[in-house]
Design a protein around this nucleic acid. Structure first.
Length: 348
DNA sequence: TAGTATGATTGGCA
DNA sequence: TGCCAATCATACTA
C-alpha cells in the first residue's frame, strides 16, 4: 500500500512541479541589478582590484584644475583609501551572504532529503527550492549593492566636487590673468587660443580661465571703483615693461579674435590705452602709445593728466550689449564706487 | 569669527 | 555654445 501511495504522490508532484517550474523559470535579468553591477565594476568596487578607483582619482585630478595643487595626491590617496574601505566592506558582506546562502541551501536540501523518506521529493523540486533560496539571497545582495553604490556616490560627491576643494590660483597665475584682462579691457574676451595659452601659463584648465574671465567681467562691472586701482597697477606694470624691454614682462597671449578695429566693441579714443595691445606675435607698441603711457604716469600721479581722469575707460565697451556703460569710474586718483556698486557678490 | 574674496556651478538667453 | 547674472562653497583676512 505504501509504495503504491508513494508512486501516486510522485505522479502528482511531477505534474505540479512542472507547472510551477514552467511558470517561474527563465526570469529576465533585472536591469536595476545590471546597472548596479556595472557601476560597481566601473568604480572598481566590484570585480578585480584596479588600483582603488584610479579612474575616479584621475577624474578628481581633472576636476581639481589640472592637478597643480600639491594637496591633490594627498586627497586622492584619501579618496582611494576610502574607496578601498568600501570595497573591503562590500566584499566581506558579499562573502557573508554567499556563505549564509550556501549554508541555508544545504540545510534545506538536508531537510528535503529527510522528508523524501516520508514523502516524494523530486530532484526538480529540490532545484526549484534552491533557486528560490538563491533569488531571496540575491534580493539581499541587491540591497547591499545599492547601499554600496550610494556610499560610492557620496564619496565621489565629497571628493570630486570641485566647489568643495576650491583653491585660489597662484599669485603668478592671477597676475597673468589680470594682465591679460586689463590689457584687453576693451574686449576682455580671450579667444580659444588665448584661453589655452593663458591656461598653460597659469597651470590651470581652459574652463578655469573662462570662469575667471566670466567672474572678472561681472565683478569689474559691478565694482569698477575698486578694480580701477587694480587696473592702474597693471597699467603701470605693463607700461614699465614696455618702456624697458619693448615687450610685456609676461607676454600676453594672442589677442581675442574679435578684438581690434574689426571687433564688436566701440572704443573710445582716450580710454583704453591698451587698445590694440600686441599679443605674443611679437608686435610692439607704437611710439605714441608708449608716450601716452609716460604722460599718464607723470609726477602728478598716473592718470591725472587724462581728461577723463582715468587710465581705463570701460565705457563704450560693448560686447553684445553687455560690456558697456554700466561701468563708469569717477576718478582714478580717488576711486569711488560706481553707482549701485557692491563690495562683493550680491549674495555676500 | 564675521566679513570679504574668489573659484565654481547653474539657469536663462541669444 | 558662450556669456551673463545669481548663487554657492570655500579660502582668506582683520
Amino acid at each position: 500500500m505504501k509504495p503504491a501511495l508513494f508512486s501516486v504522490l510522485c505522479e502528482i508532484k511531477e505534474k505540479t512541479g512542472l507547472s510551477i517550474r514552467s511558470s517561474q523559470e527563465e526570469e529576465p535579468v533585472d536591469p536595476q541589478l545590471m546597472r548596479l553591477d556595472n557601476m560597481l565594476l566601473a568604480e572598481g568596487v566590484a570585480g578585480p582590484e584596479k588600483g582603488g578607483g584610479s579612474a575616479a582619482a584621475a577624474a578628481a585630478a581633472a576636476a581639481s584644475g589640472g592637478g597643480v595643487s600639491p594637496d591633490n595626491s594627498i586627497e586622492h590617496s584619501d579618496y582611494r583609501s576610502k574607496l578601498a574601505q568600501i570595497r573591503h566592506i562590500y566584499h566581506s558582506e558579499l562573502e557573508k551572504y554567499e556563505q549564509a546562502c550556501n549554508e541555508f541551501t544545504t540545510h534545506v536540501m538536508n531537510l528535503l532529503r529527510e522528508q523524501s523518506r516520508t514523502r516524494p521529493v523530486a530532484p526538480k523540486e529540490m532545484e526549484r527550492m534552491v533557486s528560490i533560496i538563491h533569488r531571496k539571497f540575491s534580493a539581499i545582495q541587491m540591497q547591499l549593492k545599492q547601499s554600496t553604490c550610494e556610499a560610492v556616490m557620496i564619496l565621489r560627491s565629497r571628493f570630486l566636487d570641485a566647489r568643495r576643494k576650491r583653491r585660489n590660483f597662484s599669485k603668478q597665475a592671477t597676475e597673468v590673468l589680470n594682465e591679460y584682462f586689463y590689457s584687453h579691457l576693451s574686449n576682455p574676451y580671450p579667444s580659444e587660443e588665448a584661453k589655452e595659452e593663458l591656461a598653460k601659463k597659469c597651470g590651470i584648465t581652459v574652463s578655469q580661465v573662462s570662469n575667471w574671465f566670466g567672474n572678472k567681467r561681472i565683478r569689474y562691472k559691478k565694482n569698477i571703483g575698486k578694480f580701477q586701482e587694480e587696473a592702474n597697477i597693471y597699467a603701470v606694470k605693463t607700461a614699465v615693461s614696455v618702456t624697458q624691454g619693448g615687450h610685456s614682462r609676461t607676454s600676453s597671449p594672442t589677442p581675442p579674435s574679435s578684438a581690434g578695429s574689426g571687433g564688436s566693441f566701440n572704443l573710445s579714443g582716450s580710454g583704453d590705452m591698451f587698445l590694440g595691445m600686441p599679443g605674443l606675435n611679437g608686435d610692439s607698441y607704437s611710439a605714441s602709445q608708449v608716450e601716452s603711457l609716460r604722460h599718464s604716469m607723470g609726477p602728478g600721479g598716473y592718470g591725472e593728466n587724462l581728461g577723463g581722469g582715468q587710465m581705463y575707460s570701460p565705457r563704450e565697451m560693448r560686447a553684445n550689449g553687455s560690456w558697456q556703460e554700466a561701468v563708469t569710474p569717477s576718478s582714478v586718483t580717488s576711486p569711488t564706487e560706481g553707482p549701485g556698486s557692491v563690495h562683493s557678490d550680491t549674495s555676500n
